[in-house]
Amino acid sequence: MLLQARFEIAADLRAAGVPGPEGRAEGLRLEGLLPPARPELGGPIVLVWDNVRLHLTRGMREFIDKNADWLTVFQLPTYAPDLNPQECIWSLVKREVGNLAAADRSQVTRAVKRKLKQIQYRPDLVDGCLAITGLTIND
């Protein structure tokens, strides 16, 4: 569910013209993205962030404080791949496409999307990526 929601939000961002990882998301404001995403996701939103300066701005902190009833933010240390389940997911993807001899970027994109879709339907992999961090989800 979490992975699916993330991909859907990413697709919405691409459709809105926000550049992907190869470009910079200049002007992208989470303050505008998160409130509409909340009803789509059907509940509170939890963000797990590294300490990138963008995440620590006064405006972002004010936004988080103002919306604390539905928005929870966990700050990771500056560099903490061992605490970030997303690093494990990307590691699984890289194993699949690492030796791909692609003719163009679209072939790489298709391979990445295919692997992410496979992972989406393997909750045991997602759970395993969370388990190796030592973090837990409290219901």
Rank of each mutant, 00 (worst) to 15 (best):
L54D: 10
D124E: 15
L100D: 02
L2V: 14
F63H: 05
T57C: 02
R38W: 03
R24M: 08
T136V: 14
Y121M: 06
L56G: 05
W90A: 01
Q4A: 15
P19L: 08
D65I: 09
D82R: 08
L56D: 10
V97F: 11
R14Q: 14
A103N: 11
V97K: 10
R61T: 07
A16D: 10
N67L: 00
D139V: 06
D65Y: 08
V126F: 12
N67I: 02
L125E: 14
L3S: 09
E62W: 05
R24K: 14
L34R: 02
L33D: 05
I89K: 02
L56K: 15
V48Q: 08
D139E: 07
E40N: 10
A80W: 01
D50M: 07
P21A: 14
A11S: 09
V93E: 03
V126L: 15
P77M: 07
S106M: 04
V46A: 11
R105C: 06
C129E: 05
K66T: 14
Q86H: 09
N99P: 00
D139K: 09
L116T: 03
D12G: 13
Q107P: 04
E8G: 08
I119M: 06
E8P: 01
L116V: 09
L41D: 07
G32Y: 08
C88M: 11
N51P: 00
A68S: 14
T72W: 08
P35C: 03
L71G: 10
P123L: 00
K113A: 15
T57R: 00
A10T: 10
T109I: 10
Q118D: 13
L28V: 12
R6S: 14
L30R: 05
G43V: 04
L28M: 12
R105S: 07
V97T: 15
I89W: 01
C88R: 06
G134C: 13
Q120I: 00
R6I: 15
L33R: 05
D139L: 09
L76I: 07
L41G: 12
I132G: 01
N84E: 06
I132F: 06
G32T: 12
T72N: 10
V18Y: 07
R61L: 15
P77H: 02
A25Y: 04
L41P: 01
L2K: 09
A10P: 00
V93T: 04
M1R: 06
M60S: 08
K113V: 13
L41E: 12
L47Y: 01
L56T: 11
W70H: 13
D104T: 00
I137P: 00
R114P: 03
V126P: 05
A111S: 05
Q118S: 13
Q107E: 15
D50C: 06
Y121V: 07
I119F: 02
P19G: 10
P85R: 01
T72V: 12
T133V: 10
L100N: 03
K94Q: 15
G17K: 11
L34Y: 01
R95Q: 15
